[in-house]
Computed example of a mutant assay.
Amino acid sequence: MRLDGKRVLVTGADGFIGSHLTERLVRRGCEVRAFVQYNSLGSWGWLDEAPADLRRDLDVFAGDIRDPHGVRTAMTGCDVALHLAALIAIPYSYHSPQTYVETNVIGTLNVVQAARDLGVERVVHTSTSEVYGTARFVPITEAHPLQGQSPYSASKIGADQIALSFHAAFGTPVTVIRPFNTYGPRQSARAVIPTVISQLAAGAREIKLGAVHPTRDFTFVSDTARAFEALAECDTAIGQTVNAGSEFEISIGDTARAIIELMGRDAAIVTDEERLRPEASEVERLWADSGFMRSLTGWTPDYGGGDGFRRGLQQTIDWFSDPVNLGRYKTDRYVL
């Protein structure tokens, strides 16, 4: 199936990955209905910053993913649903776990139920590498056991299984994409890379972080967006769960030091107790095997390996270093 000429619903279109994906789809000529979270300000999130001509081409639906009637209304007339709407902050999931079940699990149920009833041609549901927990073997394939080490990851395991169950039980054409740690312009400063960049850009001489020894597989946002497109167009991916990662492993500490070097700053890394996860909840190691994605779609990351990672970091630094962009972040405090 090709996305060209299709009407595509993107839930979570106002967010970090969702806004990049939405813009990409509009530029390639798709009719995009952007599902954004309703708010009294009428904000479309990051889509408010999109070029005016792109915004004119958007069909924006403001609602709540927890509302089955709103989800069904938004999906009516759409051929494809790319489901990204979710609560994703791990620290906040310790604070308010019920909201993660309601948004991530029930929200996903609403999406696949509407897709089933409306005969949607394809659903791509967003998972997360956090569902694997600390790696038992590396690189991590889709066969790795699932381990809910935080309320967030547990809610995503539940959401994934709801989505896949609709394929098994009803033949709903669902694919689960499992991105590893996506980074890039517009990301929340709750994530480690924007945390480091925004503190440095604001002039900090001490960078406050949680644990720096865990390793991650960081994937640039444009690569993640391309992975969504590739899986949405891949008929053989229906019913499958597919990793999308850069296949490059680096520690949080080495990531912070790379950013300090690229920004030409002199700064120390200090531990902020408030930013530490509970010991058994910390995911110690994530490193993707994206071989299944390659075999299905031919997708490979443009920002893979150490060189690609530094290129992605530089683009992210450049974006955050713009005073207009940096001004949107509260660099003087830790935000859950």
Rank of each mutant, 00 (worst) to 15 (best):
Y303G: 01
Y92D: 14
Q187T: 03
V124G: 03
L58H: 04
A74T: 05
A159V: 02
L164K: 06
D53P: 04
L231K: 06
T219P: 02
V8N: 06
G107C: 01
W44M: 11
P179V: 08
A154Y: 03
A163H: 00
F166H: 08
D318V: 04
I106Q: 13
G18M: 07
I197P: 00
T73G: 07
E23F: 00
R24Q: 14
I106Y: 10
A258I: 01
V221D: 00
T73C: 10
R277K: 11
G184H: 01
T215V: 08
S251I: 00
A232V: 07
D48Y: 05
L109P: 04
M1F: 10
D53M: 07
L118P: 00
L146Q: 10
A201T: 03
V131Y: 05
F248Y: 15
W319K: 03
G305H: 09
E23T: 11
D266A: 15
S281L: 02
A159H: 07
L9P: 02
P194V: 08
C30Y: 09
A159E: 05
V60C: 12
N181V: 09
Q187F: 11
S96I: 13
T195V: 03
S40R: 15
A237H: 02
S153Y: 09
R122D: 06
H69Y: 13
I238S: 07
T73Q: 14
R205A: 10
I197R: 01
Y92Q: 13
V112T: 07
G107D: 06
G298W: 02
D307V: 04
F320K: 00
F218L: 11
G45D: 09
D64A: 04
R28I: 15
E274H: 10
A227N: 01
G298N: 08
D79T: 01
E261R: 15
L118F: 06
V335Y: 04
V120M: 12
T255I: 11
G210H: 07
A115M: 11
A288Y: 05
I259H: 03
A85L: 04
P145H: 13
R7L: 01
Q98V: 14
L231E: 07
G245V: 00
R27L: 14
G203T: 10
C30H: 06
I193Q: 02
A288T: 03
V10Q: 08
Y38H: 14
L54T: 11
A189P: 07
I207W: 11
C234Y: 06
T300Q: 09
W46H: 14
I238D: 07
Y38G: 13
H83V: 00
S96T: 13
V112E: 03
I157A: 02
P145R: 13
I197T: 05
L118C: 04
A201R: 05
M1N: 11
Q149S: 11
A52V: 14
A204S: 13
R205P: 00
D318P: 01
Q161V: 11
Y303D: 02
L58S: 08
V335F: 01
Y38N: 14
R205W: 00
T300H: 05
A81L: 12
W299S: 02
V138C: 14
D14C: 03
D332K: 12
R216K: 14
A204H: 15
P323N: 07
V196C: 07
R310E: 03
I193F: 08
M1E: 11
D79W: 04
S155A: 09
I140R: 02
